[in-house]
Design a protein around this nucleic acid. Structure first.
Length: 388
DNA sequence: AAAAGCCACAACCGCCTAGCC
DNA sequence: CGGCTAGGCGGTTGTGGCTTT
């Protein structure tokens, strides 16, 4: 693909913009709109390339840009979305009105990344750097690993969703059918999160409408309600019924989109890596609330064929109500986080993990709330978002 | 007071993709 | 179908201001 000649042209100015140049650009765009950026500099009397003009406009001159210090809420949003999306600044920026991707990127690189690193949190994985020191014999480390992998899976899910948006334009019939299904049938549930790669387990999340009043506070990520797949549990029915206990059971419709058909098997979608990325989901905007259902699935197990054919039993995970979990620790109380990393978990109840359990449990609870808050953030994201 | 180091942010660079011809 | 361009995006750099020595 050809690359823009852009500012390589002789005679074009580079470097910081002067107030006069800003004024010319502003005046021109206010009067004519930007139109073709390539043609704009000449018309506006600027010795700049179109790309430079576009960047100056989008990152600085645009009237709907909010400048100045980031609020605590904005910081929290950035951290949560970065945990989920990585360095996809434009996607993050869609959730921060009036902030540009460039501004967010700079703020991350100069403030937030360093702050997390200073606290012993890996700014890439959003995990405490000394994870390996945490207890493993009780299985908590495995759960923590699962949770952290959710970010990778969520990323894959988002890519799949973006693909779905494109595909949906070509598949208006099926999309409208699904829309009708999810907006008219309160017992229809939509798969929203897929499972992890390269790990010993994986998680599936399913959303359902909030109209069921009896679903509150059921935590399927707890040790008693996590839904596990293994070679003995090859379908959703078996997995859920063996694990849910007192959780309320509801029939669910799960649709896989993205392999060429909804009933394809794992093999038809390729290997594990492939089928992970091929999982695609209905728009979150169709779901009435951000209640989630979580199941975990052993990545080494047989493909859960029952999922392909939609009906299984699932249960709700409503545990993410506490929005002031791990992230707020990161934002507000570095001492507590340091204590957490050191294995000294004497933080107060505000961290969402103040159940009085042991240190490993506290850590697990904090981490779980951290990721839950991220997922809730995503689930509550505007449906018009290009990603969600 | 001056030099060195650090920090924050604007701007640029280079790659990618969609769309047009 | 392939070439070309515009626009978008993320990574990186340049520079001015501030702080420290």
């Amino acid at each position: 693909m050809g690359r823009s000649p852009c500012c390589d042209k002789v005679g074009l100015k580079k470097g910081p913009w002067t107030p006069e140049e800003d004024q010319k650009l502003l005046a021109y765009i206010e009067e004519h709109g930007h139109g073709s950026w390539r043609a704009l500099p000449t018309k506006a009397g600027l010795q700049r390339c179109g790309k430079s003009c576009r960047l100056r406009w989008t990152n600085y001159l645009r009237p709907d840009i909010k400048r100045g210090k980031f609020s605590l809420q904005e910081e929290q949003t950035i951290i949560q979305l970065h945990a989920l999306l990585g360095n996809r600044w434009s996607a993050i920026a869609t959730h921060l009105p009036k902030r540009t991707d460039n501004e967010i990127k700079n703020y991350w690189n100069t403030h937030l990344k360093k702050r997390l690193a200073k606290m012993g949190i890996d700014p890439v994985t959003h995990k405490p750097k000394n994870d390996a020191l945490l207890p493993s014999a009780d299985g908590h480390s495995k759960n923590v690993s699962n949770l952290s992998h959710m970010a990778q899976w969520e990323s894959a899910r988002l890519e799949a969703e973006a693909r779905l948006v494109r595909e949906s334009k070509l598949r208006s019939h099926s999309s409208s059918l699904l829309h009708q299904l999810t907006t008219t049938n309160p017992n229809t549930y939509v798969l929203v999160n897929s499972s992890s790669s390269g790990s010993t387990s994986a998680q599936l999340q399913i959303k359902w409408p909030s109209s069921n009043p009896s679903n509150n506070n059921i935590d399927l990520e707890s040790s008693t309600s996590t839904l596990n797949y293994n070679s003995d549990q090859t379908n959703v029915n078996n997995a859920s019924s063996s694990a849910v206990g007192s959780a309320i059971m509801k029939p669910a419709m799960i649709e896989f989109v993205g392999c060429s058909g909804s009933s394809e098997t794992k093999e038809e979608c390729g290997d594990k890596e492939d089928w992970k990325s091929h999982l695609s989901f209905t728009s979150l905007g169709l779901v009435h609330d951000h209640q989630t259902i979580t199941m975990s699935m052993d990545a080494g197990s047989a493909w859960p064929t029952a999922i392909d054919h939609q009906v299984g039993y699932v249960a709700a995970d409503m545990a993410a109500a506490d929005q002031e979990g791990f992230t707020n620790l990161l934002l507000n109380n570095s001492d507590e986080v340091q204590s957490l990393s050191d294995g000294d978990h004497g933080g107060d109840s505000d961290n969402g993990g103040g159940s009085g359990s042991g240190s490993g449990s506290d850590y697990y609870e904090d981490n779980k709330h951290y990721w839950n808050s991220i997922l809730n953030l995503v689930n509550s994201s505007p449906s018009e978002s290009p990603l969600f």
